[in-house]
Simulated scan of single mutants.
Amino acid sequence: MKYDFIVVGHGLAGAILSYTLRQQGQRVLVIDEPRASGASRVAAGLLNPIAGKRFAKSWLADTFIPAADALYDELEAHFGRQLFVHKPIYKIFSSIEEQNTWMAKSAGQEWNDYIQATYTQSLNQPTVQDPFGGIMIGRGGYLQVAQMLDLLTAELLEQGLLLPERFEADALQLTEQGVRYKEVAASQLVFCEGFQVINNPYFKWLPIQPTKGEVLEVQTQDNFNPECIYNKAVYVVPVEEGRFKIGATYDWRHPNEQPSEQGEQELKERFRQITSQGFHVVNHWAGIRPAVRDRRPLVGRHPQHPQLSVFNGMGSKGVLMAPFLAKQLAAALTGHGEVMPDVHVSRYISLYYDYIHYHNNHQP
């Protein structure tokens, strides 16, 4: 069977890329081993235009957010159900110094599209602890990632476009026409494997730092159901009546998918700093993000094998970045555009040559 593309991996990045290619009329086969603990399924799918203690606007937010809105609207129309939940994000000031930092930065015009209101005093919401106030951020929300992946997976299976198995790198052959994998041939193959790219023989030279993130789902005692997402060191996302996702931790020292007591205690303590609500833990998950040294994604063709590409490294920003970058990569791979230099893997070409040099000089 001959395809235009094989996409390896069907987490958030792989799902959005394969959908984008299919919508452009490309013949796509997806290879993915289902994993309930995958980082995309664990995450709350947050889209936050402004993040961090320094109140920095997310990189290229003005470019990425319209593309994300358009894709998620399209997917909702395609499947006939809501997938992206638009909610303002209440970023709570942790101190008067943090409040002052924001007040000094907020005069810039670049904030106008994203800040709904600034509060220098508490909103006096029951059980919410915000003595220094905060800012209400618009154009944010969260994607119901697991539901989206389930719908796209079911569609691929129905159309015979998914191999639900572990990809075996040893079975991949590079040919003059493209690639062959077992009984399947394609013109191009794109790896969307998340942190597992560190084991990929073609792209293991990329500077991926596997980073563990833990998330709790909690139930509050009083079925508290606010109209916003809270953010203060962690996010607190209301997913249904009285139930919240809280996350996430960042741990690069222990990159495993096992929930830890330390992670649970950290998230519970952070939640207690936001609300006095009583609660109990319903679920506790852990996943591994593909973080990158310069905090930019890794997108583009292999330096030596143009039939191979990678779409990876979006870390915790995949919901924001993936829709725009998937369109860019799809255009580049079909001869209709280019991938922006800031995310192209060519910026790490020196690491590739170092890897080749080391590999050639340490052959048994």
Rank of each mutant, 00 (worst) to 15 (best):
T275V: 04
N225P: 00
Y348N: 05
D170R: 13
K327V: 10
P126M: 07
L60Y: 14
E338G: 08
G278M: 10
F93S: 06
T153W: 01
G242D: 03
L12Y: 01
V145H: 01
E266M: 09
A330D: 02
H280A: 08
L17T: 02
V239E: 07
R22Q: 09
R270T: 12
S58N: 09
G300H: 06
H280S: 12
G108P: 09
A154L: 12
G242I: 02
K268P: 03
L46H: 12
R270F: 15
F203G: 00
N361Q: 11
Q99Y: 05
Q258M: 12
E217W: 01
Y181D: 12
Q262P: 04
P341C: 09
E183Y: 12
V184F: 14
V128D: 02
L17V: 05
Y19C: 05
L161P: 03
N100G: 12
L298C: 11
Y202D: 10
Q82S: 13
N225Y: 11
V190I: 15
L267H: 01
I288Q: 02
Y142F: 14
R301V: 14
G38R: 05
R289G: 03
K317D: 05
T20D: 02
G52K: 09
Y230V: 01
Y3C: 07
K212I: 10
A39D: 01
T249F: 11
L12H: 02
I89R: 05
R347M: 08
G52I: 10
L174I: 14
F195G: 02
A70R: 15
I356V: 15
N256D: 15
F64N: 07
Q99R: 12
P290I: 03
L12M: 13
N360T: 14
L161D: 02
L46W: 09
E240V: 06
L206V: 02
A286S: 13
F93Y: 11
D251W: 05
Q307W: 03
G52Q: 10
P66N: 05
E257D: 13
I288F: 07
W59T: 05
Y114D: 00
